[in-house]
Amino acid sequence: MSGGGALIEVEDLTVRFRTDEGLITAVESTAFRIAPGEVLGLVGESGSGKSVTAKSLMQLNAGNTLYDPASRISLHLDGRTVDVLGLKRARDLMVVRGGAISMIFQEPMASFAPGITIGRQMVEQLELHTDLGKRAARDHSVEMLERVGISDAGRRFDQYAFELSGGMRQRAMIAMALSTRPRLLIADEPTTALDVTIQAQVLELMKELVAEFGMAILFITHDLGVIAQTADRVAVMYLGRIVETGPVRDVLRHPAHPYTRGLLDALPKLDALDQPLTPVPGDIPSPLERPSGCVFHTRCPEVIQDRCGVELPTSMEVGERHRASCLRLEKAGELVTG
């Protein structure tokens, strides 16, 4: 399988968790691919499964996770293909964990070990993943800290996470994630905990680094504005399913799925101050009460009675590389339901 030039391909990913209340489906039949150097935005609200999807790429989900046997995650590296979900031993997983894939998290304070200096943590991963010696690893780390705009990097290198401000911690986190030169960076709500002026700085920095390092990014956020500013393509998730995916312009300007439209209408916009906010009716269902049929039908303003709760919508092409899963689109008669 060539993967059509994709760096990573996710096919039919279904993730369930064993809990006391029974089996909970967090992600269901999700598929996407990311090309080298491409930024894919994964947007969704709480419980949509966006973090679980991302963590699956590195098998970072908790011990009670069950990946459905049909799920496939293929990583294409220099002519060889790694079957990520087939990796079992921690040693083998190093190819993806910190090797080809790095991750930055929402809360940088919780992601650095509090009792070890920033520098020690940066050097440790370089020792694991590269052939750099101690001295070279230190120099490279300080260089990376400088690259992300941390002044006095030599001193910061020997400090602990608590000694840095929130924005600086997130910069250090990015420096650490990029120092092994990963092919794919997973950024899980990297600016959500930051103030808006600091967020602007970090987003700017990330854009520069993508251009410089040429890595692909899976950018996870609930903020459509951040997606508009960073992503090439976007996938909208709701309750574990990707309901719409396409180039960021097309999806934001011509949303095809009622949920994407609902999200955009509910969002307060600065260029339309007089437009009233339209909430998406109802609440996000509990994962224990997963709706049958289309996952969004319980809140959908355009629901088709007797059909949406029963039939599973298939993914329909609505534009160039722009797809959405909604029965309304099928009714328009572009394809016949399977």
Binding site: V196, T197, Q199, A200, Q201, L203, E204, K207, D223, L224, G225, V226, A228, Q229, V248, R249, L252, L264, L267, K269, L270
Partner: peptide, 16 residues
Amino acid sequence: AIPSLDPDDRGRAQRL
């Protein structure tokens, strides 16, 4: 600094 919803309106933030 508020990220605009318009993908063509990138990089207009006055960087503080």
